[in-house]
Design a binder for these strands. Structure first.
Length: 167
DNA sequence: CGGATTTGACCCGCGC
DNA sequence: GCGCGGGTCAAATCCG
């Protein structure tokens, strides 16, 4: 597994995180609370209606799944596996990007989280992983992170302290 | 055999 | 009304 680092953090949801300037590892810890509150999302288990709600939640889609976060990780491979199990359910070529966009969905039970992976158009070698929603279950590798109770289950990339020795 | 993956088709909103 | 763009699902296929 290459050294994917959180190079940039894009916040697509401007409602959960009020501290827009507090973009740091703590954001995750804090976000978890927001996520937990947003975890009330349940009902998206429909089939084709997904597209329906798509337009329905055009202005409030954020509240649909709960949280939407985009992270840009340095990876030229699709090692974007954060410990969860994702099932690729679609591929789409984006006009704005010469690279295809991959759509993944959490294959865990009761988990309707979606992940969108797109290669960066400006920084090839980087991939923009956009997470839609939040996992309502523990990470399959949750036990692996059991050593960091302070860290949220989705704090995979949040380790700025470790990269401090890079310089 | 089971599960996951792949590619195309379909759908829907928007713009022109 | 049609075309475009984006997103999702579905059937077939392949791999383990």
């Amino acid at each position: 597994m290459p050294d994917f680092q959180l190079s940039d953090y894009l916040k697509l949801d401007e409602g959960i995180f009020d501290d827009a300037d507090a973009y740091s590892s703590q954001i995750m810890a804090s976000s978890e609370k927001g996520i937990a509150a947003a975890t009330e999302v349940s009902g998206a288990t429909s089939k084709r209606v997904t597209c329906k709600k798509c337009k329905n939640g055009a202005g409030k889609m954020k509240s649909d799944l709960g949280v939407r976060v985009a992270l840009r990780m340095k990876s030229e491979m699709d090692v974007t596996d954060d410990g969860y199990k994702w099932r690729k359910y679609g591929k789409k070529s984006i006009k704005n990007s010469p690279n295809p966009r991959n759509y993944y969905k959490c294959s865990s039970g009761g988990c309707n989280v979606k992940k969108r992976i797109e290669r960066d158009i400006n920084d090839k070698g980087y991939v923009i992983t956009t997470y839609d929603g939040v996992h309502n279950h523990d990470t399959p590798s949750m036990l692996y992170y059991n050593q960091m109770p302070l860290m949220a289950p989705n704090a995979w990339t949040m380790q700025p302290s470790s990269s401090s020795s890079s310089t």
